[in-house]
Amino acid sequence: MSDKPELSLEQIPANRALVEELYGHNLINQETREYALDLLYPRSKWGLWASYFLSIIGSALILVGIIYFFAFNWSKVPIMAKFALVESTILICLACAFWRGIDRLSGKLFLLSASVLVGVFLAVFGQIYQTGADAYQLFMGWAALIFGWVLLSQFAALWIIWLTIMNLFICLYWDQAVFPSHQSEAFIFSILGVFNASFLVLREFLLYKKPSSMNWDWLGAVWVQGILFLAALIPLAIPMHQAIWESSYEGTLAAICGAVLGTIFHVLAFWVYRFKIPNMGALSTIILSLCLLGEAFFGRFVFKSIDGDGLSFFIMGVITIAMFTFAIVQLRRIHAQMEAENVPS
């Protein structure tokens, strides 16, 4: 860390952590601390936050209201009136999106509403014409129709909704159109995991490498990374657990493929979030996942080889305490190292 270039004062970002740190070391007094925090986080910001929050809740409630209106008046409304109502609501949302412009949050929210309403339209369509059976077609159509809006929106929430729809589509398609055999049904986890992981990689790439002059800051929110990370980690961890627990999956190509991909993901993600894009949240999640895998591994061994519940649970308890203590010690060590690396001396 000594070979890092010296940073000038203006290159050090001022934030709450920094102010608290200075205050904690008695370098500034209470009054200065409050003044600094007031300057960094002006009170008006809370008003802005509240107004964003309320407008998001408000649009969500309106959407829910529209959905319930349809659900409870189903057979009384003539068919074309149902379509007309949904379509005109889509049109109004789009018109408002144009009016506000899609660079503003309100415009983006209108676009998001229009995207959700396309799903409502397809659900109404499916019910009126009783297209029933293949639910994957609804999600496929939905994802395809709104993809253009999603691309243009530069809005992380809309992307997450789109990804959720795509995940549902993939799951349903796997069930309803592929008809996997028992041998291959575990492939779905690898497919979902790789699909979601590719968007995580894309997000980190765009945000940190900035390949073009476009503004990628809208991808910056922590929750975006959190959701994408979990959406990739969980499906990739499941086949690893299956490989440990379920003997019926043993040796199937699907289980092996999933377990290998899962291992690769854990290792790569650890490396990236430790050395390339330091991120304590992601690292803790990986270590938690590794602990759970360790639990499963020891659990299988202990419960299979020791008779008597009392003893095996006792041994598992000891193993659990040991493993999690070790994990937490490691995490703290990593945390300290990362702080040392990232705070210029």
Binding site: F83, E87, I90, L91, L94, A97, F98, G101, I102, L111, A114, V118, F121, F125, Y129, L145, I146, G148, W149, L152
Partner: peptide
């Protein structure tokens, strides 16, 4: 530019939706 693209996508979406209705209504009739 983005707004023009938005317009194109929006028209496309609405055309597709209404075309699907038309197809089903034709079959029904």
């Amino acid at each position: 530019m983005r707004l023009q693209a938005l317009l194109v996508f929006s028209v496309l979406v609405l055309v597709v939706l209404n075309f699907e209705i038309w197809k089903k209504e034709k079959l029904k009739a």
